[in-house]
Structures are given as structure tokens and as C-alpha cells.
Amino acid sequence: MSRDAARRDAKPMRPTMALLRKDLLLERRAPESIPAMVLFSITTFVLFHFGLGRDEVDGSLAAGVLLVTILFAAILGINRLFVAEHEEGGFDAVLMAPIDRTALFLAKGTALFLFLTLVEVVAVPAFAILLLGPSPWHGLPALIVTLALVNLALSSVGALVAALAIRTRSRDLIVPIVTLPLLVPALIAAARACAPLLAAHGDAWPAAKWLLMLGLYDLVFGLLAYAVFDFLLED
């Protein structure tokens, strides 16, 4: 019984930090995901410029272009999330360690969140310079909050789907087709929230209901993913 108690007391924080440090170190040592996601985003903005035939976008069109681009860029990151584990067989070594397996979920989710934040630090200014008509400054604080909530949604759903897809035969197909529909509610809320922020004379803050919706999405899927993640690892 004492071991049962010890297991319950085991905090996932320490292994989470160890796993996260390893992921960040790997990305620093061999940068793959972040540069690819940044390049992809900027290329997509250029494509939108020609595809839409417009020099400037604003309002809901701007929100749509920005968020859909971030969503697609996130797909790239989600696809790569467990590749290091999968290719080197590192999964087994991690699974044999005396750690709470949800630590893996927390670490991967946090890593994805950080990656997305870094990508946005580059991609959003690039968007403002290349495509956005109105000045982004008045809505910036709200935009940051909204994007943080979006990143949370992307990272919890992304970490789960990445773990789901990594041990299937066609992971690069499974990831986008499962993730994109799952993210529709988050996209709806985020796009509605961002639309006034990117409009010429829009409000500085979106309607609270959209942020609440995003928050609810984060909460529900974060908790659910946390609860079912273990089942993806036991064989």
C-alpha cells in the first residue's frame, strides 16, 4: 500500500520539466519545427495576397487569413511532435521510466504551446506588414490574449492527436483530417474574437462570449485529453 500512496504522490511536474527540457534542447540542436512553421506561415500570407488578389485585408477577412494560417502551420508542428520519440525508439525508454505517463502529455503540450508562441512572434508582425490594412496596435493586447487561448486549444488537441497518429500507418494523413474538424469550434470563436481587433475602427476588446467560448473549449478538451492520454501509450 505504501507504494500505492507513493504513486499517487508522484508529481508529474519533475518528469514534465525533464521531458520539456529535452524537447526544447532537441529543437535548439536541430531546429526543424519552428523554422518550418514560420516559413510556411509567411509563404501562406504571400499566397493569400495573390489568391485573394488584394493588397490589404481587414476585419473578419484578416482574422480568417491569420487564424487559418496559424492552424495549418500548427498541423506541421503536430505532425513532428512525437517524431523524435518514434524514430529513435525513445518511446520505450520513456515508458519504462517510473513516471506518470501524463507527464508526457503535459510536456508535449507545453512544447507545442511554446513553439506556436514563438512562431506567432514572427508570423503576426509579418502578417501586419504584408497584408493587414489597419494598424494592429489598438487591438494588440486582446489579440495576444486570444492567440494565447488559441495556442492552448491547439496544443492540447495537438498533443493528443499527435500521440494518436504517431503509431498509425499514415500519420501525415490522420493528423490533418482529425485535427482540423476538431478545431472548428475554436476557430469560430477565435475568428469572431479577432475580427474587430483587426478592423479599421473596431473595438479594442472582443465580445466576452467569444473568449469564454475559447476558454470553455480549452478547459473541456484539455481535461479530456489529459484523462484519455494514458490509453494511447499502454499496449
Binding site: 493528443l160 494518436l164 498509425t168 482529425v178 476538431l182 472548428v184 469550434p185 469560430i188 470563436a189 462570449k209 467569444w210 467560448m213 470553455l216 473549449y217 473541456v220 478538451f221 479530456l224 485529453a225 484519455v228 490509453f231 494511447l232 499502454e234
Partner: peptide, 23 residues
Amino acid sequence: RYASVFAIIAGAFVPLNFMAVRM
């Protein structure tokens, strides 16, 4: 197991999605 994980996530998705679209 994987299909069950999907079904659980998707089952929770259904009402949430309705709310968002309705809004």
C-alpha cells in the same frame, strides 16, 4: 483503444460544436 479515445473526444466535441455554431 485508439478508436475509443477518438470516440470520447468526438462525443464531447458534438455538443460544444453545436454551441459554437449556434452562437
